[in-house]
Each structure stands twice: as structure tokens, then as C-alpha cells.
């Protein structure tokens, strides 16, 4: 009496299904458009995808889109560069120097969770209502996650690699440059990913005050004027920016962390 063995494995493994992803996205937009076109919901409450696309197209054609994007990108890039460079240096000090860690870590831990938006009025007093306060808001928002990511990245470098370098008499600066920094790079890049999205979030807050142009200023103005189509068009722009940033970081990870 022989019988085939019953198979009881399988399942519990998800595989990428790109067609399903695309279809789901299209279906959401289609249903949304259908609901809006049918007039069941007032356009005040739910602007239609077509309306949002029209708003985006108008912005692009009038040249406003580029002015807003250029203004925001400039602030984001500058704030991100300043904040992440300072965060990197500070995180490195936290990771490497006992005194810096003892003095700095409690301070960083205490200041990190503060919503930087709450400090905006103070920034206006310090830096005025021009570009410096906007760049500073973004830079400060980027600084903390970057410092913490760098610090924990440094902590995650295997001690045995440092011992190895010391056993070959590698000088300290070379240990930092050739062992600790590359070893902390995965942590640093995940810090870049987080702080880049924080920079995008903060650009809206930063452009609340005294900004004529910028995606954030555009969104705020659209909100003030109750132009919901423009508002969502601006949100679309931000989300496209976010996707682009995520793509760039993934690209950097694939290139710089190929060794993993």
C-alpha cells in the first residue's frame, strides 16, 4: 500500500507583482475620478484627479511650477547640506569620543524629539524672515537624525575591524577614514533617507513664513484660498519629490553598499 506523500509546505512567501501594483493605483484614480465626475461629492471636498492634473499643467505652462520648485529645491539642498554635514561631524564625535558622547548624547536625545516647527518663531527672531530662517529650519531638522544615524552607524562598526587596523599599526586618522566611515556608511545612508524626507516635510513649515515662492508656500496659499485642487497639486509635487529622493538614495545605496 504505497501512496504519494502529501505536500504541505508552500505559502507564506510574498513575491513582487508589479502588474497588481499598477492596476491598484489605476483603479484608485479611476474610482476617484468616477466619483468626482458623477457629482456625488462636491469638488470642495474632493477635487477630481483631472482637476489636479489641470492645476499641475497650468502651473507648468505658466512657469510658476519651476519657480516654486527652484525656490524649494534651493532651500532643501542648502539646508540638507548644512544640516547633514554638521550632523555627520557631530555623530562621528559622539561615536568616537567618550567625552563628546557623555556631554552630547543627552543633549541630542533631549532636543531630537522637539518638533522643529515649534521653534520657527524663535528662528524668525534669530535669522529674520528671509532665506536664513528657512534654511536653518531644514538644517536643524536634518541635523539630529543625521547625527544619531551616524553615531549608531559608528557604533555598529565591528570592533574587531578596529583591532585589526590597530594590529597593523594603521594611524588613527586612517582608521577613521578607511574603517569607521565606510563601516558606518549603511547607518549614515539610512540617516540620509530619513533626513531627506524630513527636509521635504520641513520645507512646507519653513515656507510658512515670508515665502513668496516654493512648493510649501504654494500649498499653504492654496489652503488659505481654499483652492483644494491647487493644494493637492502641490502635495503631488511634494510626493514626486519624495519619490525622487527615495530613488536617489536607493541608487546611492546600491552603488556604495554593493559589498553588503
Amino acid at each position: 500500500m504505497s501512496e504519494p506523500l502529501r505536500f504541505r509546505g508552500g505559502g507564506f512567501v510574498t513575491r513582487p507583482k508589479p502588474i497588481s501594483s499598477c492596476l491598484a493605483g489605476l483603479a484608485v484614480v479611476a474610482i476617484w475620478q468616477a466619483v468626482a465626475s458623477a457629482g456625488w461629492v462636491s469638488p470642495v471636498f474632493l477635487p477630481s484627479p483631472a482637476g489636479i492634473a489641470r492645476a499641475l499643467a497650468e502651473m507648468a505652462l505658466s512657469g510658476q511650477l519651476w519657480r516654486h520648485l527652484a525656490a524649494s529645491l534651493q532651500r532643501i539642498l542648502l539646508g540638507f547640506a548644512l544640516g547633514s554635514a554638521a550632523g555627520l561631524a557631530f555623530g562621528l564625535a559622539l561615536g568616537l569620543l567618550s567625552h563628546a558622547r557623555a556631554a552630547g548624547l543627552p543633549i541630542v536625545s533631549a532636543l531630537f524629539p522637539i518638533p522643529k516647527i515649534a521653534l520657527l518663531p524663535l528662528f524668525i527672531l534669530w535669522f529674520g524672515i528671509g532665506e536664513p530662517s528657512k534654511v536653518a529650519t531644514i538644517a536643524l531638522g536634518v541635523f539630529f537624525p543625521m547625527a544619531i544615524a551616524t553615531y549608531s552607524g559608528v557604533d555598529q562598526v565591528p570592533r574587531t575591524l578596529i583591532r585589526m587596523a590597530q594590529s597593523f599599526d594603521v594611524p588613527t586618522h586612517a582608521v577613521v577614514a578607511k574603517v569607521i566611515l565606510p563601516g558606518a556608511l549603511p547607518g549614515i545612508l539610512s540617516g540620509v533617507r530619513i533626513s531627506a524626507s524630513i527636509a521635504l516635510i520641513l520645507v512646507v513649515a519653513a515656507e510658512m513664513i515670508g515665502a513668496e515662492f516654493g512648493v510649501g508656500a504654494f500649498i499653504l496659499t492654496a489652503g488659505n484660498l481654499m483652492r483644494t485642487e491647487d493644494l493637492l497639486a502641490g502635495v503631488c509635487l511634494l510626493s514626486i519629490l519624495g519619490l525622487a529622493v527615495g530613488f536617489l538614495v536607493s541608487l546611492a545605496e546600491r552603488r556604495l553598499l554593493a559589498w553588503r
Partner: peptide, 21 residues
């Protein structure tokens, strides 16, 4: 003119006080 949106009256007060507008 340069119209500067400052979101709130307290912000307007401090901007005017500091001569930023």
C-alpha cells in the same frame, strides 16, 4: 510691494518689531 505672509498676528508683531517688514 513685497507682501510677506507670516501666518499669525504674533508673527506679524515680532516681524514689525524687529524691522523685518
Amino acid at each position: 510691494m513685497r507682501l510677506v505672509p507670516l501666518q499669525s498676528i504674533p508673527n506679524m508683531v515680532s516681524a514689525l518689531q524687529g524691522g523685518q517688514v
